[in-house]
Design a protein around this nucleic acid. Structure first.
Length: 640
RNA sequence: GCUGAUGUGGCUCAGUAGGUAGAGCAGCUCACUCGUAAUGAGCAGGUCGCCGGUUCGAAUCCGGCCAUCAGCUCCA
């Protein structure tokens, strides 16, 4: 007999070789139905896998993230089985579960068509109805390779060969389908209830563009039809927040065939930008920054010196002026450096913090352009900090605090942090990289912030801390970043005069808070679904007279608001109130001020807030004071 | 850049046996003067992404290019 400790601490006895499923039967029928896998001593197990000794056993269901992963992973095996049946010549690559679903990569001669997806779905349905058990077996490396080779699964052979020495090599079989897999899986294919294949895409083998491109099928699955429906509905709802759609609907910005990746900002989009810039400038002055502006075009020779030519020229645009080669800046740093170098600096001045709202141009691959999120010209809210080595950590901490203040307090964003280390193609010695990376890590540790390490993702001149925000579909975008750079100061022989009267090398920090105004505005738009906080709203109040005879009063109200510095519009069109209100609602105008007989008589306006609705009549001056207060404090209220 | 899909008036979309385009919304005009999410009537608006080919004839078939969308790679 072995002792099984359950989640609630209860200990039960079972004969050796008992399976988690059998243990579940002893607990309750609902658990038997809902359990997808077991956690045995903290490791995920199949429900069918016999236990050989005393163990702590917990069950995972679809309510657990791990359960979802198991469920989706099994779904991907079902899909692979279906694909193998319909396209026997195809080779299997990998098929993991991901957030909200799963995918599988196949190497097929001809790419799949949407009609193929339907056929695959039908086949999957048949496999599910057959309720085939998932059976696990282990093989030695030699046997595993032999099995994969015999099946013609070249990618699997490669995967097995790359497994670490001590790895347990396991396979899972359901019906006539066998796949290399660490598991675990749900007990049988019948456990997959509702699924849908969502999209088709190309994906390079092992994510390397030098490798062959495989066909990837994305899908998702849920234990209940209603959950699947709910997911698809949420997806549709999320798309309504898409900044590309709202950009057109709210007349904020647009991109055209005439300039792919080069966005146009409309008057209302410019209001957003200008408000963001104004806020940015206020905060940076408070934090001891000075503002500069460097030219957009500079000699190519500068970029050769900075290392951009060597490391970044594929992304740069070039031009010729008077028979000389020039480059259009993809980054602002060399400009900032030239400015720093324009005179001598004392240690007493450091740190020098030079901010620049710099317009940069980068040649991005056509396939990656995405509304305002990924463009070919954008404005970085850049700054370059020149400091003494012992000031580095404090400066980094200061920047982190500013990012936190912006993201959390002002905009109410959720975000996560990544620390990106030395890339393959990098400048400078390992020792300097080490020092720079430690400085960044040290600041994060000091602030006690959680972060994930992103190996090899740093800039070519230094490691970085990235702040990542999410769009309407949960895709993450890098916005803020802090980069620690010991290379440029060397390259450009930057110096300051120390206490000892000798020249010393400053450390340079590159950083952005918004990241790019364009991307940040895109994120803002999706985050608020276009219903911007009052201080950012392109139109803050719309004044609506009920009939012509209230027009004059309404116009006076509008003038008074404008005079008070509130962005107000007068809607004197010959339409019903309901119509004008609807329009203002659709345009997400935060306040509608309505004037009819009662209001004209009493010198009030009827206030309607876009999410709270009719708030009743209030004296105009009180409304103005209220709005101004919210605007000045940049009051944030999350819209549902 | 790669894989796949898509491309019809400002927006959303109809338009498959290939016979020179249609709706709703938006816009404009007129009437209605109206109390918190769409008043009614009328008018106007399209080289059917671009170029070429097949055909008596192409939005519809074929090819090339461009752009967009999803994903991959890459990145603020």
């Amino acid at each position: 007999m072995i002792q099984i400790t359950l989640k609630d601490g209860k200990v039960v006895e079972h004969p050796e070789g008992v399976t988690p499923l059998e243990i579940a039967r002893g607990i309750g029928s609902r658990l038997v139905k809902e359990a997808l896998a077991a956690k045995v001593n903290g490791r995920l197990y199949d429900l069918h896998r016999p236990l050989t000794g005393d163990a702590q056993v917990e069950f995972v269901t679809f309510d657990d993230e791990e359960g979802q992963l198991v469920y989706r992973h099994s779904s991907s095996h079902v899909m692979a089985q279906a694909v193998k049946k319909l396209f026997p010549e195809c080779k299997l690559a990998i098929g993991p579960a991901i957030k909200d679903g799963f995918y599988y990569d196949f190497d097929v001669l001809q790419s799949f068509t949407p009609e193929d997806l339907e056929k695959i779905e039908k086949e999957m349905q048949a496999i599910i109805e057959a309720d085939l058990p998932f059976e696990r077996f282990e093989l030695s490396r030699e046997d595993a390779i032999a099995l994969a080779r015999a099946a013609g699964e070249d990618y699997k052979v490669e995967l097995i060969e790359d497994l670490p020495e001590d790895a347990v090599i396991s396979f899972y079989r359901q019906g006539d389908f066998t796949d290399l897999c660490a598991g675990p899986h749900v007990p049988s294919t019948g456990r997959i209830r509702s699924f849908k294949l969502l999209s088709l895409a190309g994906a390079y083998w092992r994510g390397d563009e030098r490798n062959r491109m495989l066909q990837r099928i994305y899908g998702t699955s849920y234990p209940k039809q209603s959950m699947l429906k709910e997911y698809l509905f949420r997806l549709e709802e999320a798309k309504k927040r898409d900044h590309r759609r709202l950009g057109v609907e709210l007349d904020l910005y647009s991109v055209h065939d005439e300039g792919p990746g080069f966005p146009f900002f409309h008057p209302k989009g410019m209001v957003l930008r200008n408000e963001l810039e104004r806020f940015w400038r206020e905060e940076h002055v408070k934090q001891g920054y000075q503002e500069i502006r460097s030219p957009i075009i500079l000699r190519q020779e500068l970029w050769e010196r900075s290392g951009h030519w060597e490391h970044y020229k594929e992304n740069m645009y070039f031009t010729r002026i008077d028979e000389e080669n020039y480059a259009i800046k993809p980054m602002n740093c060399p400009g900032g450096i030239i400015l720093y170098q324009s005179r001598l600096h004392s240690y007493r001045e450091l740190p020098i913090r030079l901010g620049e709202l710099g317009l940069v141009h980068r040649h991005e691959l056509s396939g990656v352009l995405h509304g305002l999120m990924r463009v070919r010209c954008f404005t970085q809210d850049d700054a370059h900090l020149f400091c003494r080595p012992e000031q580095v950590e404090d400066e980094i901490v200061g920047i982190i605090e500013m990012v936190e203040y912006f993201y959390r307090n002002i905009f109410g964003f959720d975000y996560h942090i990544e620390l990106s280390t030395r890339p393959e193609k990098a400048m400078g010695s390992d020792a300097l990289w080490e020092t720079a990376t430690n400085a960044l890590r040290g600041a994060l540790e000091k602030k006690g912030l959680p972060y994930k390490v992103n190996e090899g993702d740093g800039a070519f001149y230094g490691p970085k801390i990235d702040f990542k925000l999410q769009d309407c579909l949960g895709r993450t975008w890098q916005c803020g970043t802090i980069q620690c750079d010991f290379q440029m100061p060397e390259k450009f022989d930057l110096t300051y005069v120390g206490e000892d009267g000798l020249k010393h090398r400053p450390v340079m920090l590159h950083r952005v808070v918004f990241g790019s105004l364009e991307r940040f505005i895109a994120i803002l738009t999706e985050h608020f679904a276009g219903a911007f906080p009052l201080w950012l709203a392109p139109v803050q109040a719309r004044v609506i007279p009920i009939t012509d005879r209230h027009a004059e009063y309404a116009r006076q109200v509008t003038d008074r608001l404008l005079e008070a510095g509130i962005r107000a519009e007068f809607d004197g069109r010959n339409e019903k109130v309901g119509y004008k209100i609807r329009e203002a609602q659709v345009q997400k105008v935060p306040y509608m001020l309505i004037a009819g007989d009662k209001e004209v008589e009493s010198g009030t306006v009827a206030v309607r807030e876009r999410s709270e609705g009719d708030l009743g009549a209030q004296p105009l001056e009180a409304v103005i004071a209220d709005l101004k207060g919210r605007i000045e404090t940049r009051y944030l209220r999350r819209e549902s």
